[in-house]
Amino acid sequence: MVIYLKAGGELRSKLQPDVDHFTRRVETEAGKPLSDILIGIGISPAFVAFAFKDGQLKRLDYTPSEGDIITLQPPVSGG
């Protein structure tokens, strides 16, 4: 199945977007959690704080569905 990953902030360079400046098309097996999909495309889950889809928080154990557009957000720790 195909999903689309978008990245915010400093994650963009790690995602290597190929659809537009923010988005990467990813082919993956159905039933895989997001954390495994990230590892499969070479992104350590430690570089992703959380994700969201349609305005709702999605944790890294979320299992995407065909055509999902998921935005990844980096850890942000400064003050």
Binding site: G8, G9, E10, F50, L57, P74, P75, V76, G79
Partner: peptide, 26 residues
Amino acid sequence: YGAVQGWQGYAGFFHPPQTACLACLL
């Protein structure tokens, strides 16, 4: 909650049990 890095920042208002808490997010 607030946190920043580079050009990016997060802010939220957590008040369990009415809402999630920070550990629900991170």
